[in-house]
Design a protein around this nucleic acid. Structure first.
Lengths: 325, 325
DNA sequence: TTTGTTTGTGAAAATGATTTCATACAAAGA
DNA sequence: TCTTTGTATGAAATCATTTTCACAAACAAA
């Protein structure tokens, strides 16, 4: 079924049918005739043809570092909920934390494949930043702050600052930290800085070699905890950059006979199902992942609708989930 | 940059340029001229126009019940890996376990939006089955068996049969079961049946009210365990349909002072990160989720390439992960 | 020499919509 | 009365490609 067949059946021109669908001028009489034919035939305009003509694909490209992650899942859920209400669809690309792939997907999306791109970023390489600036479709960055670029991110710094203060307030003094690469500004650099500044503000030195850097996995948490423990057997608290890392650390400490929550306080971040169900449950930080997804989606739709708007950088808050009360 | 501009620059017709890209007849001389111009301009054909003309979108629609799930994540990762190698992209739709939405997405995808659909199914309603049959693009069903329909699924029945035997072999006799709705054939009905048949084969009765049915969440596992415990305070093993459910059950049993792995054996399914990191680690079943994704993707690409082929129903195996040795 | 096959070419049709344009009528305002 | 404005219409152009078609040339087989 094409628009001209519908037009013929309704006794009007194809332009009239197009106007019928796009709120153009159309008399009540013809509107009714078209409505009837459309209803009878179940006709729906071809999206491909619309796209070719209007240059709008009604799709948003979403690039995620990995799919099997609770934080990513929550952000995507937020994005989906907004896009759906607005008749947009989500084209998913999984970069597998490979910056080369990330760039490739950007190129693919630039090719008028999508009307906008939401990037759940980890590492913002120079090449990536450059690409973002020169992309022909609007971009929203989620999870990282990049000044001059539309983004929605979390207050990682203050979150970790607060959780470190919390640990200090419980009298802990031998505090270690397990984080991730500084190339990841939000999860790596900012969280570490929050830890360091909170210690400094309390007049405590950051102990030599008391911070370790590893990957995003349980296994990495385990390994890094092992190394810390060699250097600091009297460690009484460990702040971790993610829940998974904290769970790995917990495994190692338990093996050493440490009682978590008593001998050693352990904190994660992300408020995942995992954090709530290890025992004892992890003290963790709840970030508003769904909200960041919703905000990102709203922002990209706004950018598409209004062309360029003033750059907005949205910082979301957090909640402390304290299980050691 | 359009194909005719390229043609003009290369001194050939637009048809020649099209043939250049699509392996049609073209002389060495012109091929070289076109190659040069294409290289200089960085021209890439418009996907929208190609789609309109060829009716091929180079996209596969993937419908998932939810995104924040480790099993779904793993299947999608498998799908992505195969699609990517073949120049296809993945259009993701999240049904949020809402069968109405599932149907809607099917309709949207049917509209020549995608070249094929992979459905990670939970409940196969009559309406859904009907829709699958009459869809104009090929469909592959993942995670559920539907005879006469291309599908990739797991041997849920024997997996649970085996794990139940394992529990029996450890001398347990008061065994309960927490599952999910029978409307989900694979996770609900088949797994329960495996449990029941294993008991029957061992000459044991399935105790009155010893099987509970709830949702897919930790909270549901907790609640259902509570109810079972009221009826069977001397329960010595609980088989659960998923890891999350098992973790919920574990929480309740621990609160009752039960030692997991001694007083009560507890088994989950899915071999998730969660299962490995609660303590004690859950005995669980590893299903080949990534493989099911890869197989599904291969199948859908084959269906697209060759038109209809003989229906294939692929059953994948499993591994027992026994932590109570 | 004729016939057939393979290779090569560009003009033009086709894909299915939106949008521009030219035109027309009626009502409102000056 | 004359001009403006808003509503309404369909023919035709447009979007960027692939595909069909008609036609040639080259070469082999009959």
């Amino acid at each position: 079924m094409t628009i001209s067949e519908i037009a013929k059946l309704a006794g009007v021109s194809s332009a009239a049918v197009s106007r019928y669908f796009n709120n153009g001028y159309i008399s009540e009489e013809k509107r009714e005739a078209i409505r009837k034919v459309v209803e009878d035939t179940g006709y729906r305009p071809s999206l491909q043809a619309q796209t070719l003509r209007t240059k709008r694909t009604k799709m948003i490209g979403v690039i995620v570092p990995k799919i099997d992650s609770s934080s990513v899942g929550r952000v995507v859920a937020g994005i989906t909920s907004v896009l759906e209400k607005n008749g947009y669809r989500l084209l998913l690309a999984v970069s597998e934390q490979n910056s080369q792939k990330e760039l490739e997907y950007f190129t693919v999306f630039d090719d008028k494949q999508v009307d906008g791109v939401i990037l759940l970023a980890t590492v913002l390489s120079v090449a990536l930043k450059k690409k973002i600036k020169q992309l022909s479709v609007p971009v929203v960055l989620t999870g990282q702050h990049l000044s001059g670029c539309n983004c929605v991110y979390h207050d990682d710094y203050h979150a970790v600052y607060d959780v470190t203060e919390l640990v200090l307030s419980k009298g802990r003094r031998n505090i270690c930290y397990i984080g991730v690469t500084n190339h990841d500004r939000a999860v790596g650099a900012e969280r570490l800085r929050g830890f360091q500044d909170a210690l400094a503000a309390a007049g405590m030195p950051v102990l030599e070699g008391s911070t370790e850097t590893g990957g995003f996995t349980v296994a990495s948490g385990y390994e890094k905890m092992k190394e810390l423990y060699k250097k600091y057997p009297d460690v009484d608290a460990v702040i971790c950059a993610t829940d998974k890392i904290a769970v790995g650390a917990m495994q190692y400490l338990k093996q050493q006979g440490k009682k978590i929550g008593e001998d050693v306080l352990l904190t994660g971040q992300g408020d995942s199902v995992l954090a709530a169900n290890v025992s004892p449950a992890l003290t963790t930080i709840h970030y508003y992942y769904e909200e960041s997804g919703r905000k990102s989606a709203q922002m990209i739709l706004e950018l598409i609708a209004k062309g360029t708007i003033a750059v907005r950088e949205i910082k979301l808050g957090y909640e402390l989930v304290d299980t050691y009360q």
